[in-house]
Design a protein around this nucleic acid. Structure first.
Length: 600
DNA sequence: CCCAGCACGC
DNA sequence: GACGTACGTGCTGGGT
């Protein structure tokens, strides 16, 4: 086994540390891994740093508990991390970068993150180090539990682990990571993923690290008073529901609710059931039955309010950092198989916006005193990409004309002038446009529009007659997926379509929709990432104080002093719309405000 | 502790 | 006859 035979050295004195640093000064690259007291980077104290730049070899620098002493040791290491001609290799580098930032050390690129490299190579597999080591090195690393115990309240921290034990565990991780780097690098080249890695994903690490550290202010008072109001309304609804149903039950239990609606009240003899044989009680079903009984509307309202209360209004205040007074989300760069980011703890990418009461939550996101928000979002980016990638003349023309795209689509498929498009026609065309991006069927469209299948099929036929290139492109995407086993974005990001030739038509259908959607959604993800990297670079280079704080798939949110607005607006719009050259314009809408809702 | 069902975003 | 719109996170209930 490759990792078994090794020589891991503990650096025991300041003198040894100086020797180590002087030896490392000439390196082109090194791998490092920090050990800390917490899994939350921004709250972490440093315990040790492991280094490796040769297979089977490495060093551990251990730091005492006193911050002052740790800082003075780190001053010795600082030049290594700040040297822009050394490649820093690591697994999930965002974490290590943030930990060192806690000590005033700015780790500078270039970076090579093995987690992100593997995310590009195999987007729908796992990317944690244990999996990578077992899969690619055929080696199971020392489990962290052997040092700090099983998770739970008795789990120790790295601070309590004897340093002799820490050396073996920690340097091994750096050693494994370094070896993985040399396995993944040639694979990236072979798969044509080098640019995506070096120009987009690796530079984005620092961008996200900065955004997370900045965080966003939440007005806790607003949420607390909204919570009081919500709880009152929920209790009132509860009472009404019990009266209407003629019995008390747990409204939040889909099982109990289903039995009440369909056994007790008998609202539908042919009620749909889930695979676990419960009655389906989701919004779509309930909405359709709502004319039959007044309890249904109340249940829907109850559900909505409970969701707001538990997921947002009660949860967000608990995630406000005591030292910054802000919430610091984590952006995960290696989850979504299409290339999108995801956000958690808290998830700031699913804050309500559509529903009137949900919008109250967005209002609670506010800038620091004297500051404002600026929000910029791509208008219809996925449909524009459909136009570009399919080269459909008529869809491109619709975007170039600058008219409302859904209205233009409606005019075409319903055969009327744009000026004669009704709200209903536009709304149907909009549903069809979204459906197209997701690879919808005539059945799916008929469900969504509550129209007959025949009518839905005619609508889709009309759509493809209006935009024939789109049909050709979709067929071509599936053909490519069948031939190659994967599809790609404009920037070469891959998604494998393993089930594309499955004999099971449900499974195959899923793969076909992925083949259509992934290049569109993925290219949009690539484009906004490019914009983020460039904007981050310019904010720094131009010494601007404005901070990029959030990304929500096609939208970027900034916090700034009003005096910087004109400059920021011009720069952000230029970088976002200039992030890719398309056959249609990349339109960017924007807004400003004293809270997120206003700015959006 | 895990899964199902549901609901929020794009 | 069955199936049926991409990508996520997180809550509650309910079974183990």
């Amino acid at each position: 086994m490759s990792v078994g035979n090794h020589s891991y050295t503990l650096i025991e004195s300041e003198n040894d540390l100086r020797k180590l640093v002087s030896e490392m000064r000439s390196l082109k690259e090194f791998c490092f891994d920090t050990e800390t007291t917490s899994i939350s980077a921004l709250a972490s104290n440093l315990v040790a740093i492991a280094f490796s730049w040769k297979k089977g070899e490495g060093y551990l620098v251990w730091f005492p508990e006193e911050r002052a002493k740790t800082l003075s040791l780190l001053r010795i290491l600082q030049p290594l991390f700040e040297n822009t001609s050394t490649l820093k290799v690591g697994q999930n580098l965002k974490f290590d970068i943030q930990v060192l930032e806690n000590y005033g050390i700015e780790v500078k690129g270039p970076f090579f993150d093995t987690m992100l490299a593997h995310y590009l190579l195999e987007p729908d597999l796992r990317h944690n180090m244990d999996f990578l080591s077992e899969t690619y090195l055929n080696y199971t690393p020392v489990p962290i539990e052997s040092l700090i115990g099983e998770k739970g309240k008795n789990q120790k921290t790295m601070r309590e682990v004897p340093v002799e034990k820490l050396v073996e565990y920690s340097v091994e991780d750096a050693d494994v990571t370094y070896q993985l780097k040399h396995l993944f690098e040639p694979r990236l080249i072979k798969e044509g993923l080098t640019e995506l890695a070096s120009k987009i994903e690796m530079p984005l690490i620092k961008v996200l690290a900065d955004m997370e550290r900045t965080g966003v202010r939440v007005n806790e008072g607003d949420l607390r008073s909204f919570a009081v109001q919500l709880r009152e309304d929920i209790i009132a609804l509860e009472k009404e529901i019990y009266v209407l149903a003629g019995t008390e039950f747990n409204i939040s239990s889909p099982k109990q609710l289903g039995d009440i609606l369909f056994l007790r009240l008998k609202l539908d003899d042919n009620a749909r059931v889930t695979k676990t044989k419960q009655f389906t009680t989701n919004e779509e079903i309930l909405q359709r039955l709502s004319y039959k009984h007044p309890v249904i509307g109340k249940v829907l309202e109850y559900r909505g309010l409970r969701k707001l209360l538990s997921t947002y209004v009660e949860a967000l205040p608990q995630l406000i950092d005591k030292s910054t007074g802000r919430v610091h989300t984590s952006f995960n760069q290696a989850i979504a198989s299409t290339g999108r980011l995801s956000s958690n703890n808290p998830n700031l990418q699913n804050i309500p916006v559509k529903d009137e009461r949900g919008r109250e939550i967005r209002k609670a996101f506010v800038p620091e005193e004297g500051h404002i928000f600026f929000s910029a979002d791509y208008s219809q980016i996925e449909l524009r990409l459909m136009a570009h990638l399919s080269r459909d003349k008529s869809m491109i023309a619709d975007f170039l004309s600058g008219s409302d795209i859904h209205a233009a689509t409606a005019a075409k498929i319903f055969g009327v002038e744009i000026s004669e498009v009704t709200r209903e026609m536009r709304s149907r065309a909009k549903t069809a446009n979204f459906g197209i991006i997701y690879g919808i069927s005539s059945f799916g469209l008929s469900e969504r529009l509550t129209i007959g299948r025949k009518e839905a099929k005619e609508l889709i036929d009309g759509y493809f007659n209006s935009y024939p290139g789109v049909k050709v492109y979709m067929d071509e995407s599936i053909r490519k997926a069948r031939a190659l086993g994967y599809v790609t974005t404009m920037f070469g990001r891959k998604r494998y379509t393993r089930d594309i030739n499955s004999r099971n038509q449900v499974v195959r259908g899923n793969a076909e929709r992925n083949a259509i959607n992934a290049p569109i959604q993925g290219t949009a993800a690539d484009i906004i990432k490019i914009a983020m990297v460039r904007i981050h670079e310019r904010l720094k280079k131009e010494h601007m104080k404005a901070r990029m704080i959030l990304q929500v798939h096609d939208e970027l949110i900034f916090e700034l002093l009003p005096g910087e607005l004109d400059k920021l607006k011009e720069m952000v719009i230029a970088e976002m719309s200039g992030a890719a050259r398309l056959d249609v314009p990349l339109k960017v809408d924007w807004g400003t405000g004293k809270n997120w809702l206003e700015a959006h």
